[in-house]
Design a protein around this nucleic acid. Structure first.
Lengths: 196, 196
DNA sequence: GCTCAACTTGGACGTTCGTCCAATTCTGAG
DNA sequence: CTCAGAATTGGACGAACGTCCAAGTTGAGC
């Protein structure tokens, strides 16, 4: 994942990050449709010119915000996968369930941003490439975790578990998550060792 | 789901549907961010005034487009669930796999629209309510199908299967679906009868 | 302390936007 | 045939938009 924080800058890097975090807040609240250079400037408490200075155009802004988001959420997800591969199946279920429940509640804002950007990457080749790479990386990590967990078919089980996670998250966007999320996660993980 | 086609109109209903279908095309291609009254008029080959005449504002337009989309896709999904509950587990797996594969390939445009609207309903209470109702209805149908299939815990299995479907679809937005989708579906359905 | 690149800022430009309205045509019920 | 209401249209309006630029400020390296 691109590191957004390093450019030639002196202190410009800090401001760039402020702008990107403000961008992610706006996307969560109003969507890409509600994102404007002026609105961003207002949200970040910066003059309009500052936005133009750091980002050549709206497209570049969105792509940079995407990279920033992946940087943050990718690490969070990698940590979850590490927990999955490190413990017993029951501990793995807790790791996944914690991740999902946290995503759907306290991190709901970031969740909305995540899927907004996901949908947008279905349209922009530049985003698609980077999202596909991100998903493949997570899947590879998950395959490893499934292997460590003794899965009979780690490749399929990894895809299955990742799909369940995405699915539970997406459903929670519109419908209340409900207490069954943990049960669903436990259910799928309890069957990993079954015959296939 | 609201029926969009009935208003007091004479022939206005046909035009309203044309406008809504054009709206859904634009959302798939350019997102809600790329949807404008003028662009819609151009896409539908109608004058700008026609859009204002049939929809009081952009919000109402989006909500009507959402209802139109649910009308179409809801029926398609219901048909799939019927197939799931009607046959053997193997036939059920085929029904789900066919549905997912078709959604990710030939119906990719509609898939993008679906998740764009899904994310948007996380922001608008009006959409959220109707999306939540839609999901609950599908889930109820799926619970029935799981029961017919002999599931030991139809409620959980229904949520699990629906989550897998959503997850596979979402992943396919950015990454190529690949031939493993069928395997994942078969894998999850082959475990429905297992102990829990 | 001079220099130059990085940074910062306010404002102007032309475009596109959502909304609104007056005028006109169409059409089915009485 | 008549007429009320639906359908249709083009254009006008102010607001908000993305982009660009010229002028100013800052601060590390020489």
């Amino acid at each position: 994942m691109d590191d957004v924080t390093e450019p030639p800058s002196r202190k410009g890097a800090a401001r760039k990050i402020e702008l990107l975090d403000a961008t992610l807040r706006i996307i969560a609240r109003d969507g890409l449709a509600g994102l404007s250079m002026r609105g961003l400037a207002a949200e970040a408490g910066a003059p309009l010119g500052a936005v133009s200075y750091y980002f050549a155009g709206k497209d570049e802004l969105v792509e940079a915000a995407f990279a920033r988001h992946s940087e943050i959420e990718g690490e969070r997800m990698a940590a979850m996968i590490r927990r999955v591969g490190a413990g017993t199946p029951d501990e793995a279920a807790d790791a996944v369930a914690d991740f999902v429940v946290e995503g759907c509640t306290v991190r709901r804002r970031q969740l909305i941003t995540e899927y907004e950007l996901m949908v947008e990457s279905a349209r922009r080749p530049a985003l698609q490439e980077s999202t596909a790479g991100w998903l493949r990386s997570l899947r590879a990590q998950m395959v490893e975790a499934m292997t460590a967990l003794g899965s009979a078919d780690p490749e399929i089980d990894a895809r299955l578990l990742l799909a369940v996670i995405s699915g539970l998250e997406v459903d929670s966007l519109a419908d209340e998550p409900g207490p069954t999320q943990r049960d669903v996660v436990r259910s799928v993980l309890s069957r990993l060792r079954g015959a296939r």
